[in-house]
Amino acid sequence: MIELNDDKCMHCGACVGACPANAIYLNEVILDFNDDCTDCGLCVKACPVGALTLIRTRGLKVPAATA
């Protein structure tokens, strides 16, 4: 999962162009990720100001029974 820090985001689209899955949508100050995101993390590298963080969720999900 990609986490966006709105405070840092410049809404510049560097992540949009770098995304190989076309999973990011930008309009003025709105930045949205859709389900096509593969967690590849390229957008994290592309972001000049560090507004994006890759949160690794796979394998960490707690099974419902034990939650």
């Binding site: 770098a18 390229l42 994290v44 590298k45 592309a46 972001c47 000049p48 100001v49 560090g50 994006l52 963080t53």
Partner: peptide
């Protein structure tokens, strides 16, 4: 990008 190691390196 291929030389960037972590977040916010440009800054």
């Amino acid at each position: 990008l291929s030389k960037i190691k972590g977040p916010s390196e440009a800054k």
